[in-house]
Amino acid sequence: MTEPTPADYVRPKDIDNRATFWQRVQWRLETVAWDLVYWGPMKALGPDKASDFGGWLMRKIGPALSQHKTMRRNLRLAFPDWDAGRIEETALAAWESAGRTAGEMPHLPAIDPYTSGRVEVVGLDVLDAIRESGNGAVFISGHFANWEIMPAAITKRVPSAVMTYRALNNPHIDKRIADLRAAYGTQVNAPKGIGTRELMRALSRGAPVALMNDQKFNEGIPVSFFGHAAMTAPGPTRMALKYKVPIVPVSTVRTGPARFRVEFHTPFVPEDTGHPEADIRRAVEQITAFIEAQVRAHPGQWFWQHRRWPKEAWRDAGVS
């Protein structure tokens, strides 16, 4: 197997192989709706108006979706001292943030981190030092604000960097998003499920990799997140230890419609004491503490819609 090039589109084949005839028909219909109902109208609005409209729309319809109950539970678990009004307002802000992200998606090429004037990049000395070292690094972040901005801030400065992403079930929409990311500057993507070997190959040749490390991972290790055990992926830490490279935390904050601040924080090298499990846990805890601090700073800009904690955490905390 050859190394992926910027033009490559890599996709887990098992997603398509499992599809029935009617599933494939549904994919086609979804793609038509994607183009006509979502992509075309949002593209016509321009980045600021699309961001505003997407945020307004999701703030209206989000509370009617099943994920709203999950968001409330998550927020009550994370912030037990908050009253119902603050919980609800933060949930609405999170819906707005997700809607803005959707509205901004067609306009990503116009939100260039370095030329558009829409993105402030902090910590470029950290990023440039990684590039100049030629030794690679593991960038970690979470689903903050518009999480598509951070990868481009990396790859436009360090073109050899490899990003991970979660492939969509619909191959036609998945390809459209992959092409958009390539146009935006995030050209080399390793889909979860088949991307681990690509990440390891990248690190072995001195190229950085970037991963999200804030979502539930059932095969992970339990570490404290807002005071409750949350299953967390140890993969980024394992790779940093294996290839002896630093972990670089990255945050993204929305500062306005289609405007952001991306910050590269102080790198750290996971301690290697010869006790792998303890070393991994210590670094995963450090990453999770970083994620938590960013969420606390901007709670309305994180993706609360997913089940970060097991149901037992809700039950034990008396959250219904």
Rank of each mutant, 00 (worst) to 15 (best):
M1T: 14
P6G: 11
R11N: 11
D14G: 11
D16T: 15
W22K: 14
E30I: 06
W34C: 05
G46H: 09
A50R: 06
S51D: 15
L57Q: 09
L57S: 10
P63F: 06
N74R: 06
D83E: 13
W95A: 02
E96R: 14
E96K: 09
T101K: 09
E104I: 02
M105W: 02
P106I: 03
P113Q: 05
V119A: 13
V122D: 15
D125A: 10
A129P: 07
I130Q: 08
E132I: 12
A137D: 13
I140G: 08
S141Y: 10
I149D: 07
I149L: 08
P151M: 05
P151W: 05
A153V: 09
I154G: 04
S160M: 12
V162S: 01
A167M: 01
P171Q: 01
H172G: 04
K175D: 08
K175F: 07
I177N: 07
Y184H: 11
T186V: 00
V188C: 00
P191N: 10
L199Q: 03
K216I: 00
N218H: 12
F225A: 08
K242D: 01
Y243L: 01
K244R: 10
V245Y: 11
P249Q: 06
T252D: 07
T252E: 06
V262H: 07
V269P: 00
D272F: 12
T273S: 10
P276R: 11
I291K: 03
I291C: 02
P299S: 04
G300Q: 00
Q301D: 02
W302V: 00
F303D: 00
